[in-house]
């Protein structure tokens, strides 16, 4: 589904990704771990198409297409979903409006008929139950005045409504208490399927107690230093990141 080859990217003049190689097949869940400043978020952003990172080398192929040549919105319509580390507040744009516009943009792109208001609301209300969210949040502005936990839940709500092929969850567990973490994980797990792939970007092993990855990769200093099974995450939890490189000691701040 996704093939990243020798990907290099800079933020400003500073090289952040220094040759990433990663293959993700349908049905797989990959956890991408690493210390702050290792390039985890930059990788998520490059995949989603955010313009603040500049790709300086390498390639990314998604479902046989050159991903880097696609516009942000085209990637989304092709089934890539980024759950933001810091979901943006958009006063004046209704949550329900965004969900419907997003879903119908994707359906149109795939040659499916757009959902009418009734079918759409039925679908969304069903998904909100799964996320244990109050329906009133539909009629509020996107993320406006939401708590940190509500924002993350709202990201996963969008994900379960849009049913992406490839979901990238950028530090979705940060700022969640244990109950919210369970709800969010439940939402994510409900989407696991043989045709869908996920990349979980996380700093801590905690999320992986609830969402079991097939593969764990350790990113440090812009490269994947080690790959393995779920046991690698446990090893990291015990040993910390100190052994993977010096990045933690450089005081590098995540972009």
């Amino acid at each position: 589904m996704l093939s990243i080859k020798n990907l290099q990217a800079s933020v400003g003049d500073k090289p952040i990704l220094k040759g990433i190689n990663l293959d993700v097949k349908a049905g797989e869940v990959h956890a991408l771990m690493g210390p702050n400043g290792s390039g985890k978020s930059t990788l998520s952003n490059v995949l989603a198409g955010r313009e603040n990172a500049t790709v300086t080398g390498g390639s990314v192929t998604y479902q046989g297409k050159d991903l880097l040549a696609l516009a942000v919105e085209e990637r989304a319509r092709e089934g890539i979903f980024l759950a933001f580390q810091y979901p943006v507040e958009i006063p004046g744009v209704g949550n329900v409006y965004l969900l419907k516009a997003a879903l119908n943009a994707q359906r149109k792109h795939r040659g499916l008929p757009e959902l009418d208001a009734m079918d759409f609301l039925a679908l969304v209300k069903d998904k909100m139950k799964l996320m244990e969210m109050n329906e009133s949040m539909l009629y509020r502005a996107v993320n406006e005045g939401f708590s940190g936990g509500e924002k993350k839940r709202n990201e996963i709500l969008q994900m379960v409504v849009l049913e992406p092929n490839l979901a990238i969850l950028d530090e979705t567990d940060s700022g969640l208490d244990i109950d919210a973490l369970k709800v969010v994980s439940h939402g994510v797990n409900s989407l696991r399927s043989p045709d869908r792939a996920m990349i979980l970007v996380t700093h801590y092993q905690r999320l992986l107690d609830y969402i079991k990855p097939d593969f764990v990769h350790v990113l440090s200093d812009g490269r994947i230093q080690r790959s393995g099974g779920p046991e690698l995450a446990l090893e990291l939890e015990r040993e910390g990141y100190a052994w993977v490189g010096d990045a933690t000691n450089e005081g590098v701040v995540a972009p």
Binding site: G49, R50, V72, A76, V88, I90, V93, A102, A105
Partner: peptide, 25 residues
């Protein structure tokens, strides 16, 4: 950031811009 967020949900660049201008007023 708001513009990117809307586009990352599949909303066309022009529409996302229009939505944000409207939201402002």
């Amino acid at each position: 950031e708001q513009w990117f967020y809307l586009r990352a949900r599949g909303i066309a660049a022009d529409l996302a811009r229009t939505l944000l201008i409207q939201a402002f007023t």
